[in-house]
């Protein structure tokens, strides 16, 4: 437990410079969307929740490739492995830090962007709740693919091919519960819990392979 918090604190400290990128990408994505589909407020209100969810998924994707890369390259993972700490704990700590520093800002800003897409009242709440419940799943699932590509020099494109098909359930349940004020929210929670159960083991198994 202590190790978990140590990892968490370390990674949150390290993330202080990088967290704005995903947020900027997310805001830009939502800004570009009306430019592509036209400024009709009724259309935007219909597309809004889905587009914000898609933006959140893509913003998570672009933030993933540095999740383990630096630690594999500079040998931190080897050191942690030598210290006898289970890598699963490292994964949990890093995913928690990733979500808190990179994804939580998106969740906080999302209702504001929702207002700009003509969402109101209940729809904004549904959007915020669905993002809060569902985005941890994106971090957990992304962690598996990030751990697989950590040792690769050009892992970025590979990462997106690996991870986007696995995002399908999260995206569907997330966007559905955002658009329909809660329908599918229970399934979204289930996806988050399932990915939280699988991800530490799969990510750790993949990370071990990068340790020479």
């Amino acid at each position: 437990m202590k190790a978990l918090f140590a990892i968490l604190a370390r990674d949150m400290g390290l993330a202080r410079q990088g967290w704005g990128l995903a947020l900027g990408f997310f805001a830009l994505f939502v800004t570009l969307m009306p430019l592509a589909v036209g400024p009709n407020l009724e259309v935007l209100r219909q597309l809004g929740p889905g587009m914000i969810w898609l933006g959140a998924a893509l913003a998570t994707l672009i933030s993933l490739d540095r999740l383990y890369q630096a630690d594999v390259e500079d040998g931190s993972v080897d050191q942690l492995l030598l210290s006898g700490m289970p890598l699963e704990v490292l994964v949990l700590g890093k995913v928690a830090a990733h979500w808190l520093t990179t994804i939580l800002p998106l969740v906080i800003v999302a209702p504001l962007l929702g207002v700009m897409l003509n969402l109101e009242g209940q729809a904004l709440w549904a959007l915020a709740i669905s993002l809060a419940v569902g985005t941890p799943a994106l971090s957990f699932i992304g962690s598996i693919a990030a751990a697989m590509t950590a040792g690769q020099r050009r892992g970025g494109p590979l990462l997106s091919i690996l991870v986007l098909p696995l995002f399908v359930p999260t995206l569907i349940f997330g966007a559905a519960s955002a658009a329909s004020s809660g329908e599918g929210l229970a399934f979204l929670g289930a996806v988050t819990l399932l990915s939280a159960a699988i991800s530490p083991f799969a990510s750790a198994a993949a990370l071990r392979l990068h340790v020479s």
Binding site: I144, M148, L162, P165, L166, V168, P169, I172, F173, F187, V191, L194, I198, A202, A205, A206
Partner: peptide, 17 residues
């Protein structure tokens, strides 16, 4: 590892779709 993660995910994907 990827194939197994995908195999666990396939029923979930099917269900979600």
């Amino acid at each position: 590892i990827l194939a197994l993660v995908g195999a666990i995910n396939l029923p979930v994907i099917k269900f979600s779709v």
